[in-house]
């Protein structure tokens, strides 16, 4: 189960399991992001390289205009995946 929701303040809440079967669902939301955005990952349980790919493509696009994604409330397992991928220096992680 994966869900992606846009909060009233413009931040995006990810929840459940962001795996390869969810890429198309996520893409539909991420392609609409045009400015710096907070991703609330408090309820995100899992992410794989497929999910990382969606976030990375968005981050690269935003970085071209000096903007970016900020990830908050990562669980320790997901934080480790970001570190193993070398993404902890590419994304702002709080």
């Amino acid at each position: 189960m994966f869900d992606i929701a846009v909060n009233d303040d413009g931040s995006i809440r990810l929840s459940g399991r962001f795996d390869a079967s969810q890429v198309d669902t996520a893409q539909r939301v991420f392609v609409e992001i045009t400015g710096s955005t907070v991703l609330d990952c408090e309820d995100l349980k899992y992410i794989s390289s497929a999910g990382l790919g969606v976030l990375f493509a968005t981050q690269k696009r935003l970085m071209d205009s000096g903007q970016g994604l900020k990830l908050v409330h990562l669980n320790p397992h997901i934080r480790e995946v970001f570190q193993l991928a070398g993404f902890d220096t590419i994304f702002e992680i709080a």
Partner: peptide
């Protein structure tokens, strides 16, 4: 750096 990396290939 991010500019030199491509999405994918991480699996």
């Amino acid at each position: 750096p991010a500019e030199e990396r491509q999405p994918g290939g991480l699996g």
